[in-house]
């Protein structure tokens, strides 16, 4: 497409302007985490690493970091197992209600978190299950499955069904076909889905709030709870920076591993 010099310039300016608006606040947080002052004043008063070096001494922050990591890891593993099995089954078999099942599987990502959260909470309470770590994991698994499932389904669609037939034709049984053909071809999409699932779980607030019991506090919740407490505020910038630093490379990697939009597998 041909674009005139002028519109090229204004397009570029708009793009950079938007990116600046989006990322400036993140940069501010990052800078403020090295501030000497204990309030979020601008400009920063001086450079110091004291919030960083003492942040792990804040018991509640450390506990939150640990439970967020555990939670995200477990939800991710659940999503890998359930999400990929689901997509293999949906791809492989024809059965009554297949389309509805596939729709139901993807629904949690479209539903507002607050609906999922309330529904899960009610269900847990109704059946007399304690709200605790397990219930949060269940909540997170519902939407983590979706990203793995979506990634794997997209990949499976691009793999010609002839490849499986060719493999069988050459004498491979279904296990060999899975191990030597299907798995190597979908592997990277499973990983892409998995790390996205991790990232989603790591900074989720709404479903967590409804499904977590009294004793559980995840990192995003910790931020939320301490945002208005002056003496803890600098630590919030540290934690926010940590969340950012963990999420960015994950998002980048996930994009690398997922399918390039217009490329065929041959």
């Amino acid at each position: 497409m041909q674009i005139s010099k002028r519109s090229q310039f204004s397009l570029r300016a708009t793009t950079y302007g938007l990116l600046f608006l989006l990322y400036m606040p993140l940069l501010l947080i990052f800078i403020l985490s090295f501030n000497t002052a204990s309030s979020l004043t601008w400009p920063p008063r001086g450079f110091s690493t004291r919030w960083w070096s003492t942040f792990l001494d804040v018991e509640s922050a450390r506990a939150a970091l640990i439970s967020s990591t555990r939670l995200a890891l477990i939800a991710m593993v659940n999503a890998i197992v359930l999400g990929s099995m689901l997509s293999f089954a949906l791809q492989r078999f024809e059965f009554f209600g297949k389309n509805s099942l596939s729709f139901l599987a993807v629904l949690p990502i479209a539903l507002p978190g607050i609906v999922t959260g309330v529904a899960l909470r009610n269900t847990f309470v109704r059946f007399g299950l304690d709200l605790g770590f397990i219930s949060v994991i269940a909540g997170h698994t519902t939407f983590c499955i979706v990203v793995v499932h979506n990634n794997v389904v997209a990949r499976l669609r691009r793999i010609s069904p002839n490849l499986r037939e060719a493999s069988a034709d050459l004498g491979a049984n279904s296990l060999q076909t899975f191990r030597l053909i299907t798995w190597p071809l979908v592997r990277s999409s499973v990983f892409a889905g998995a790390i996205l699932a991790f990232a989603l779980s790591f900074d989720e607030v709404v479903v967590t709030t409804f499904t977590a019991g009294a004793g559980i506090q995840t990192l995003p919740q910790w931020i939320l709870n301490n945002f208005s407490r002056p003496n803890v505020l600098p630590y919030v910038t540290v934690v926010a920076t940590i969340v950012m630093v963990i999420s960015l490379p994950i998002a980048w990697l996930a994009q690398r591993l997922a399918d390039p939009p217009n490329e065929k597998l041959v």
Partner: peptide, 10 residues
């Protein structure tokens, strides 16, 4: 079988 789209393992 030789498939029309060859079905080579990519």
């Amino acid at each position: 079988t030789v498939f029309q789209d060859y079905a080579l393992f990519p």
